[in-house]
Amino acid sequence: MEGMSLHDEPDSSPSPATVREKSMRELVERHYGRVYNLCYSFVRDRDEADDLAQEVFVKLFERMESFRGEASLSTWIYRIGVNTCIDALRRSKRRATEPFDERRSDIARDEDTAGRIALSEMVRGALMVLPVKYRTVVILREFEGRSYREIAEVLECSVGTVESRLFRARELLRRILHPMIRREVDHEV
């Protein structure tokens, strides 16, 4: 039994460090895609989104001990993700990666992939014009499908504030994307 420790026993549990690392890796595997998408919606740059998404997980691990389960895990991840992106935008003092060309918003709806990607990038470009607090609620509501209450929990504000920001954000987007919206309304009618 010389040199035998608790960990050497065949039926012993894995060490806390091993369990911890395995949990961390699983957490990344499971949530990276979603976090990456969230970050991309804020910065509209793949490399920067990748860097920010990594930063989000590093922060998550740093604060793991403070997670008490009061909010759901996804709310906690979104909160750290949103704050990380907002901090990055503040640091760079950037509002848009490229200027939004309003004249292009009347582009014909193209059904092929290139057309859809072009259209998507145009809408994302319009989103980048919005002040960050309005952009945030649109991203969480429209891209991440969160309810008002969930958004309020992520942003740690009231549901009324979420509603008010969403109202203003949509008013702005409606004006920016007016030709596209008009076309969409006519298409439905």
Binding site: G33, Y40, A49, V123, R170, L177
Partner: peptide, 20 residues
Amino acid sequence: RALRRTLASVERIRTTRVPV
């Protein structure tokens, strides 16, 4: 509703790389 449909049609950015 048209604005919501337009936003919903935005392509998701896919990444196959998970930099664990």
